[in-house]
Design a binder for these strands. Structure first.
Length: 490
RNA sequence: CGGGGUGUAGCGCAGCCUGGUAGCGCGCACCGUUCGGGACGGUGAGGUCGGAGGUUCAAAUCCUCUCACCCCGACCA
């Protein structure tokens, strides 16, 4: 294995792939477009899950689990939905194999054809709304606030580790409400939860807004989203929250009796984030030396490397370090004491840098004499020697500082790469450079499509709370009420 | 689906053009010296060359077919 990683400047996608592999996050599986998430990568996902799950519970949701298989007829019920997902569905048509009469191996037993094909869920609206028909009879049954942690399969043309895989892990919230206002409030609330998570935990600033019709979730009235800017200037959709109106209720014939004793259709939302967030995390913070993790999501926040030659040396260091480890444990700071004698310190240093551990400490005999410890931070790649006593207090504030520093850094980057343009020439030039481009748009699908064809840029979102400032569409010159955000995207 | 590429030891690759004992680096095992930024020397283990056919005295190498994966596009979270 070579020791250097391709740089971001040389080849961004190669750099990305190398980080994923070298930091031991994931690897390609034998199945096209699928990945094996390795323990270190999965530990990050578990941290994400924990934080998000707490936030979902906090906002009144419960977890449930619905089946992997969706009868084809269910998927067909909501027309837009069916059309949107049809092209990327894995379909189960048989339930049995048999030995190949011609020789070795197994073949599909044609006698086991299913009466109705089962679609491996690309998303669960269909199965879930089928259940909701039985769950919802009265306004007293509402709201239904359900979340599910699951895997889904979308047979994508082109895949990339974490960013787009045929199978991915995610959570999907599916709620039903008495009124439109309530459902809209839910949609906004969950978008807010996502924004808070991505900014506070992942240390990645996001823009919030609503998608244009062409980028809308299949079957939704409106799709709200958060968008983040990656270091190569491309945008990444980090989460979506959909206002589904009464579309699914009507399609699945879910009705309830309201307070006025009238039959009505409940109003729905759905919202999700996926393991793609790990891709976002990598591309937002990491550098040419490897992964950089925000402390709040780092499986190991602090690693301590003893520098020793002999068992006696190690014993002395162990003795010194023991109370420190106990204190870290008591404070709930995930740490690793790496007293493994199979690798040398230099090797370990490089390894933990590759894995993005936020804080690294080294302690050797020299430190024992001086009452010091060496402390290095991953975000700035700096190190200093500090008094051993009281080091845990220092670590605590340092972890908070690193978390904040990563966010600030990403925010400055985004600000430095967000531009307003008013002419078509300026637009084209700017899009080439990457970044978010704020420009006027006439609101038509045709213009949006033309811009996409000519520049590969899409409208990432229409900002929610931006000031209305009329102008002329950058492409057609027609009237526009406010600027929208363009970018090339993942 | 279009374009490009790759399948040879656990990983990364050379060998193929011009057929003739399957090689290198890393990793791995053992021994010794090392150990505060990816150590060094020595010894050693490890491969039916993606698969199937064909040509040939002889195929990793030539021919045909096939499978898989990766990268770049179109599609998407």
């Amino acid at each position: 294995m070579s020791k250097s990683i391709p740089t971001r400047e040389d080849n961004y996608s190669e750099w990305y792939n190398e980080i994923v592999k070298r930091a031991d996050l994931a690897e390609h599986s034998p199945v096209r477009g699928c990945m094996v998430i390795k323990p270190y990568g999965f530990a990050i996902w578990e941290k994400m899950q924990k934080a998000l799950d707490d936030m979902f519970k906090e906002t009144g949701h419960q977890n449930a689990y619905f089946p992997l298989f969706v009868p084809k007829s269910f998927l067909e019920l909501e027309e837009q939905h069916a059309e949107g997902f049809a092209k990327e569905c894995a379909v189960v048509t048989h339930y049995r194999l048999k030995s190949n009469p011609d020789g070795k191996g197994l073949i599909v037993d044609e006698n086991s054809r299913l009466e109705e094909p089962l679609v491996v869920r690309p998303t669960s609206e269909a199965v879930i709304w089928h259940s909701y028909k039985n769950w919802i009879q009265s306004w007293r049954d509402l709201p239904v606030l359900i979340n599910q942690w699951s895997n889904v399969v979308r047979w994508e043309m082109r895949t990339r580790l974490f960013l787009r895989t045929s199978e991915f892990l995610w959570q999907e919230g599916h709620t039903a409400h008495e009124t439109e206002a309530e459902a809209l409030e839910e949609t906004g609330k969950m978008l807010g939860v996502y924004a808070e998570f991505v900014e506070q935990w992942m240390a990645v600033p996001v823009l919030q807004g609503v998608k244009t019709a062409s980028e809308r979730f299949a079957g939704a009235i409106d799709t709200y989203c958060i968008e983040a800017l990656m270091q190569d200037g491309k945008a990444l959709q980090a989460g979506t929250s959909h206002f589904l109106g009464q579309n699914f209720a009507r399609s699945f014939d879910v009705k309830f009796v309201n307070k006025e004793n009238e039959l009505d259709y409940p109003w729905a939302t759905s919202w999700g984030v996926s393991t793609r967030l790990i891709g976002a995390l990598i591309m937002a913070h990491s550098d040419d030396k490897g992964l950089v993790l925000p402390p709040k999501l780092a499986p190991i926040q602090v690693v301590i490397v003893p520098i020793f030659r002999t068992d006696e040396d190690l014993a002395k260091i162990n003795e010194k370090v023991e109370p420190l480890l106990a204190e870290l444990k008591a404070k709930g700071i995930p740490y690793k004491y790496d007293d493994d004698d199979k690798y040398k310190p230099g090797y370990k240093f490089a390894e933990y840098e590759l894995k993005g551990v936020p804080v690294r400490m080294a302690i050797g005999l020299r430190d024992l004499e001086n009452g010091t410890i060496e402390l290095a931070r991953r975000d700035e790649l700096s190190k200093q020697t500090l008094p051993f006593d009281g080091i845990v207090g220092h670590i605590e504030s340092l972890l908070a500082e690193i978390q904040q520093n990563l966010y600030d850094r990403a925010l400055s980057f985004r600000e430095a790469n967000t531009f307003s343009v008013d002419t078509w020439d300026a637009f084209k030039a700017r899009i080439e450079q990457g970044g978010f481009v704020l420009a006027h748009w006439d609101g038509t699908d045709e213009t949006e499509e033309k811009i996409k064809q000519e520049t590969k840029a899409t409208i990432r979102l229409i900002p929610l709370n931006s000031i209305e400032m009329a102008g002329k569409c950058v492409y057609s010159g027609k009237e526009s009420a406010k600027r929208v955000v363009f970018a090339r995207a993942y």
